[in-house]
C-alpha cells in the first residue's frame, strides 16, 4: 500500500513520530473532559499494567495490541506506531488484591497505608462492600481497615472465573482447536473439549492479575486447570504405537548423561525395583530410625 501511494507524487505523506497513539475509548470518556481522565501505571504481580480512571470512579485497564509492521494513515500523515490501545473495564479489586495479600495477612491495616504510591488514587474508586469480598473489615467504618481473608478471596476469584467463562461462552471466541466452518460436531466429547478450552482460557485471563501463590491455591481449591496442566494428554493419541521406541530413546539419553556429562551426577530418581518395593512394604508399621537417632 505504502509503495503505491508514494508513487503518486500528488500525495505528500508525512511520517509522524511514534508519540502519536491510536486509542479506542468508550463513548462516555468522550463526554467527560479530557483532563479528568487519570492514567496510572501499576505493576501487578505478573505484569505491568496501565489503568485509566474516569471521573465517575470507574477503572479501566489500558490494553495494548501490538503487531509488527503496522502503521496508520491519519489524514495525510503516516503514524508509524501501529499499536492499538483499548480500554476495558476492570474490577478494581484485582488491583487491590496484591496489596491486601502482601500487607494484611496477619494484621488489619487501613487502605490508606497499604495502597501507597500511584495505587493511592484507586482507594476512592472502591466501595467498602467490594473490599469485603476479599477481606474482613476491622475497626470503625471510616478507618477502612481490613484483614486479608483467603477463603473469601478464593470464592471471589472462583466467581470471577465463572463470569469470565460465561462471557467467553457467549462470545463463542474460544474453541479447542481449528475446525472447518462446515464441520458438524458429532458427540458430546467435542463439547467437553470446547468447555475445557474455555475454562483454560478463563483461568489464564484471571491468573494474569493474581500472584502465583493464589493461582496455585485457586487451582488446588477448585481443580480448575487440572485438565490443562498437561497439554500432551489433550492431544490426540498417535495411532501408531511407538511407546516402546520412545522409552528406548529416553533410556539412551539418560545413559549419555550419566556417562559423558563432565559434571558431578545429581541424584537421579531411581526406578523402584521389586526389591525396593518389598522393602518399602516391609517398612510399614516400623518406627522411623530418625526417631531414635538425632541428627549430628
Amino acid at each position: 500500500m505504502s509503495r503505491r501511494s508514494s508513487n503518486k507524487k500528488s500525495v505528500n505523506l508525512k511520517v509522524q513520530n511514534s508519540s502519536t497513539k491510536v486509542l479506542f475509548l468508550e463513548k462516555q470518556f468522550l463526554k467527560e473532559e479530557q483532563n479528568e481522565l487519570e492514567v496510572i501505571s501499576i505493576s501487578l504481580p505478573r505484569k505491568n499494567s496501565t489503568f485509566v480512571k474516569s471521573k465517575k470512579g470507574l477503572i479501566y485497564e489500558l490494553i495494548q495490541f501490538n503487531e509488527k509492521h503496522r502503521s496508520y494513515f491519519i489524514d495525510k500523515t503516516v503514524c508509524s506506531n501501529g499499536k492499538i490501545y483499548m480500554t476495558s473495564q476492570i474490577d478494581p479489586l484485582f488491583i487491590f488484591i496484591q496489596y491486601v495479600e502482601a500487607n494484611c495477612k496477619t494484621k488489619a491495616q487501613p487502605l490508606t497505608q497499604i495502597m501507597t504510591g500511584p495505587a493511592e488514587l484507586f482507594i476512592e474508586a472502591l466501595k467498602s462492600s467490594q473490599m469485603k469480598m476479599i477481606a474482613d473489615q476491622k475497626g470503625p467504618d471510616d478507618l477502612k481497615a481490613f484483614i486479608y481473608n483467603e477463603d473469601k478471596t478464593l470464592k471471589w476469584l472462583k466467581l470471577k472465573f465463572n463470569n469470565v467463562k460465561k462471557s467467553l461462552k457467549d462470545l463463542k471466541i474460544v474453541s479447542s482447536g481449528a475446525s472447518s466452518m462446515n464441520f458438524v460436531k458429532s458427540s458430546l466429547q467435542e463439547d467437553n473439549d470446547d468447555e475445557d478450552a474455555i475454562e483454560e482460557t478463563a483461568f489464564g485471563i484471571i491468573s494474569e492479575y493474581i500472584s502465583l501463590d493464589l493461582i496455585e491455591k485457586l487451582d488446588q481449591h477448585y481443580g480448575i486447570s487440572k485438565k490443562s496442566k498437561d497439554p500432551i494428554t489433550q492431544k490426540r493419541k498417535s495411532e501408531v504405537k511407538n511407546d516402546e521406541n520412545e522409552q528406548k530413546k529416553i533410556k539412551l539419553e539418560d545413559q549419555e548423561n550419566s556417562l559423558f556429562s563432565p559434571k558431578k551426577v545429581e541424584k537421579l530418581e531411581t526406578k523402584a525395583t521389586s526389591k525396593t518395593k518389598a522393602l518399602e512394604k516391609a517398612a510399614k508399621g516400623s518406627k522411623s530410625i530418625n526417631s531414635f537417632f538425632t541428627k549430628k
Partner: peptide, 14 residues
C-alpha cells in the same frame, strides 16, 4: 566412576 552430590545427614548414635 563419576561421583554424586549426596546431601546425606549423619545421625548421632548414642
Amino acid at each position: 566412576m563419576k561421583l554424586m552430590n549426596l546431601d546425606q545427614e549423619h545421625l548421632g548414635i548414642p
